[in-house]
């Protein structure tokens, strides 16, 4: 607020200043719907249309293919590893950043965002540079008969990399805003560090955490670029669902490709619904917090 006097606005703004004339409004809404329809809904619908083109029988038969099943299993495995790892990391990073001050804190926050900024292909290549046959750890890994690149560990690592910021990013602002007073209160009441975390910190961030997990999971299952680089596309072994879609599509096996793609599309829909539900719950929780703050405006001292 720029007003030096800090007085209240005398009257609400006239309504016409806030909203456009009715025809303009309708036009804008219609344009938005058309664009959203063409860009978002149509492709999604066509995924299912293509998948079912050969009939339900052909659609279901696509999932009896051992390679498709292997791709689904691999994707679930990767997500089952990457998501918990990122939850663990996200919680500890957010905890450290929000509750303590230490040198390099801002740098760490920036670093967490790195996977957002860098192209997934680049992150895949970086892993090859590090763990590949000619990479930094390559000879050591080869000597111990460990394969990272063109194998499941590489896919997991690349997925963890690209999903790195999702949980931490959701938690950091919330935990910073909440401060440490409740934790301090818990400690004065005799709670240990773990009790404080489990009984105070975690319940306070549960919706943000869940939100982060949903986004993290969607990305972990859907990641293509980085995984594509490190996977080696070994059918039935290192092909995740997105890679399997590409393989099938390149072989002009459209029904099978779109059948697998339809699973990913369904994952997206489930993610959207879950996200909306969590947002609503988190919004309700936030509203409760807001009412908490209403009466806590510090009072001025009345005496001179």
């Amino acid at each position: 607020m720029a007003g030096a006097g800090g007085g209240h606005r005398a009257a609400p703004r006239p309504r016409s200043g806030m909203s456009e004339p009715a025809p303009v409004r309708r036009l804008l809404i219609a344009a938005t719907l058309v664009v959203a329809g063409c860009v978002l809904v149509l492709p999604l619908a066509s995924v299912f249309a293509e998948a079912l083109r050969g009939g339900l029988g052909a659609y279901l038969a696509s999932f009896r293919d051992p390679e498709a099943l292997a791709a689904i299993r691999l994707t679930l495995l990767v997500a089952a590893i990457a998501v918990p790892v990122n939850v663990l990391f996200g919680l500890s990073a957010a905890w450290a950043i929000a509750k303590f001050s230490f040198p390099g804190k801002r740098l760490l926050i920036t670093l967490i965002d790195l996977p957002y900024a860098v192209s997934p292909v680049v992150s895949g290549l970086v892993y090859i540079m590090i763990y590949g046959a000619n990479g930094v750890f390559g000879p050591w890994l080869a000597a111990h008969d460990l394969q990272v690149i063109f194998a499941v560990p590489g896919i997991v690592l690349a997925t963890i990399f690209v999903t790195f910021p999702f949980v931490a990013r959701e938690l950091i602002p919330l935990m910073e805003e909440q401060g440490t007073e409740q934790e301090q209160a818990a400690m004065t009441l005799g709670a240990s560090g773990w009790q404080t975390f489990r009984r105070v910190t975690l319940p306070n961030v549960r919706w943000a955490l869940l939100y982060g997990v949903i986004l993290c999971n969607a990305r972990a299952m859907g990641e293509f670029g980085a995984v594509s680089v490190v996977s080696g596309h070994i059918r039935g072994k290192t092909a995740t669902m997105p890679l399997q879609v590409e393989i099938l599509y390149n072989e002009y096996n459209h029904v099978a490709a779109f059948a697998v793609a339809s699973l990913l599309a369904m994952l997206a829909l489930v993610t959207l619904v879950a996200k909306a539900v969590v947002e609503r719950r988190a919004g309700a929780a936030a509203a409760q917090i807001t009412t908490t703050e209403v009466e806590t405006e510090p009072q001025r001292r009345e005496a001179p």
Binding site: E181, Q182, Q184, A185, G190
Partner: peptide, 19 residues
């Protein structure tokens, strides 16, 4: 450490556990 001092502490902004 604070949790072994046996102090009751009341914070200005209450610091109640809101959940």
């Amino acid at each position: 450490p604070v949790r072994r001092r046996g102090v009751g502490f009341v914070f200005q902004h209450y610091a109640l556990f809101r959940h």
